[in-house]
């Protein structure tokens, strides 16, 4: 709790945190939605925002406010799956490569470098096309996770490489620690901030990619996400026809989400930076 109070004193964290809370509350509203998000034509089409339809309705006959609550929820689920799974892979690969070194390191880094140099976007588009029929929230999350860990695994590996040379590593070995104990007790405090700040960055990246894939029409378009909302809005020429409420809702929400995630990422990584942490321990 002390950590949280310290963090909230940073205005960037406070802004990001409250913005994210707002979005989460918004996503939670979806559970009380009077409409089924996959059914069309439940409400009159193309209504402007009004007291009855707060954010208007779209050309598919869906209420945009309630549809958006589902969209935020689903986009966050995809991003969370992508972020968490890829963090796990990145931590395991980075730690094993950094600590074991030699052949293991070379093999793992060859694999991650290969992922880094291929034109990622094209490959994801191609794969999405191939498995389009089975592309739901979970499989999309996993697909993005598969391509999202390589860079961070490298980051973690380089951290481990430098930590391995610190004297406390030797103290720990002399205290009888095995490899697992060493990595978890000694290195985790240094890796955790990296995991958190990259998790948030990775989630932002996953949401961006989901939107792109959806606009290209590569996702299951019946599932409401920020991307598919945009897809339909663009598909029905919402700009041309002046239905700004339809387009602005997903765009505003996406921007708010990106900015909130960015603020959180910046302030958390500053707070968890080992150097400032040591100073705080001294000052505390």
């Amino acid at each position: 709790m002390k950590l949280f109070r310290d963090l909230l004193r940073d205005y960037r964290f406070a802004l990001g945190f409250w913005a994210l809370c707002l979005l989460l509350f918004f996503a939670a509203l979806s559970f009380g939605s009077p409409y089924d998000p996959t059914v069309w034509g439940e409400v009159p089409r193309d209504q402007r925002p009004s007291a009855e339809y707060w954010l208007g309705t779209d050309s598919n006959g869906q209420d945009i406010f309630w549809l958006a609550t589902f969209a935020v929820r689903n986009s966050l689920i995809i991003a969370l799956i992508a972020g968490v799974v890829s963090r796990i892979v990145a931590v395991v690969v980075g730690m094993v490569a950094g600590y074991r070194g030699h052949t293991t390191d070379r093999a793992l880094m060859f694999f991650s470098d290969s992922l880094l140099v291929i034109p990622l976007f094209l490959v994801i588009v191609m794969l999405a096309m191939l498995i389009r029929s089975s592309l739901n929230l979970v499989t999309l999350g996993l697909l993005l996770a598969f391509f999202g860990w390589a860079w961070d695994a490298r980051l973690i590996r380089s951290q481990i490489l430098s930590l391995r040379e610190r004297e406390f590593t030797q103290t720990s070995i002399l205290s009888g620690a095995n490899t697992l104990g060493l990595v978890f007790n000694e290195y985790m405090p240094y890796i955790t901030p990296l995991v958190f700040s990259t998790l948030i960055n990775n989630m932002a990246w996953a949401i961006g990619l989901e939107i792109t894939l959806a606009i290209l029409g590569l996702l299951d378009l019946s599932i409401p996400t920020l991307g598919t909302m945009l897809y339909w809005a663009i598909n029905y020429q919402a700009i041309l026809l002046g239905r700004w409420w339809w387009l602005m809702t997903p765009i505003t929400i996406s921007l708010l989400l990106f900015v909130a995630l960015y603020w959180l990422s910046v302030s958390i990584s500053v707070y968890l930076d080992p150097r400032t942490r040591v100073q705080r321990i001294g000052a505390g």
Binding site: F168, T171, S172, S175, G176, G181, N185, P189, P274
Partner: peptide
Amino acid sequence: DPFGTFNPLRPVERYFFETLRN
């Protein structure tokens, strides 16, 4: 380096308990 001997992010006593446990 006395300041490098122990991980600055961990309480020093942990090393003592770990040694005894291990």
